[in-house]
Computed example of a mutant assay.
Amino acid sequence: MKLIDDRESQMAQGISAAELQALKLRAAELRAEGAGGTGTKEKEREAADCVSLIESLEGLDRQIAELLHRVVKDEAPHLDPQVRDGVPAYAREGTVIVFFQPASQHDSRYGSIGFNDEAFLDDGDFWATSFAVLAVSDKFEAKLRGLVGKAAG
């Protein structure tokens, strides 16, 4: 497929390999969304895609993503695992509540766990919606469990 290779080559100019991979993942997500389906089979496919993405990560990124996946299953089983914008994400009724942004995806020194505005984390006029993660520990897991439980409602 020469045409596709040429397009990828043109797109790749000025785009890192991680960004190109994220673009490809997002294109696949959009194609899958276009295929329709919101039932159990679609949710199972999305969950399998999320697990596959987590398994493709390495090192600390993978440890964090695996922990987040376990915590969501334990604390907020009503959230649906899926891949959004090339990252593991967990949604309530189609709206992403919590996600993991791997460090490797943007050559960052840390990965981060983020919460979208539909998360129930409001705390007055000012609160955190993203957390940098440098290590997995019992203390981190306890904090994460509390945040996910609160965010998911």
Rank of each mutant, 00 (worst) to 15 (best):
L147D: 01
L134C: 06
V96N: 10
V133F: 01
E118Q: 09
S137G: 03
I97C: 11
A142Y: 04
D138K: 10
P102A: 11
G111H: 15
F126A: 13
V148H: 14
S104E: 11
F100I: 02
K139F: 10
I113L: 00
G114P: 05
V136W: 08
V98R: 14
G111E: 08
R109T: 08
F131W: 05
D138T: 08
A103T: 07
D125I: 14
F126S: 14
L134Q: 10
A135N: 15
L121N: 06
E118S: 13
S104H: 11
E118F: 08
D107S: 14
R109L: 14
F140V: 01
F131V: 02
G124N: 13
H106L: 11
V133I: 14
P102Y: 01
F120D: 11
S108W: 00
G124D: 07
F126H: 09
V136T: 06
A132G: 06
E118K: 07
K150I: 15
V98P: 01
A135R: 13
F131G: 00
S130R: 11
S112C: 15
F126Q: 14
T129Q: 02
F100N: 00
V133S: 04
A151C: 08
A142W: 10
D125L: 13
D125A: 09
G149R: 07
Q101G: 01
S112A: 03
H106N: 12
G111I: 05
W127C: 03
D125E: 15
E141R: 00
E118C: 03
S137I: 08
F115L: 09
F140P: 01
A119Q: 05
A119V: 03
D125R: 13
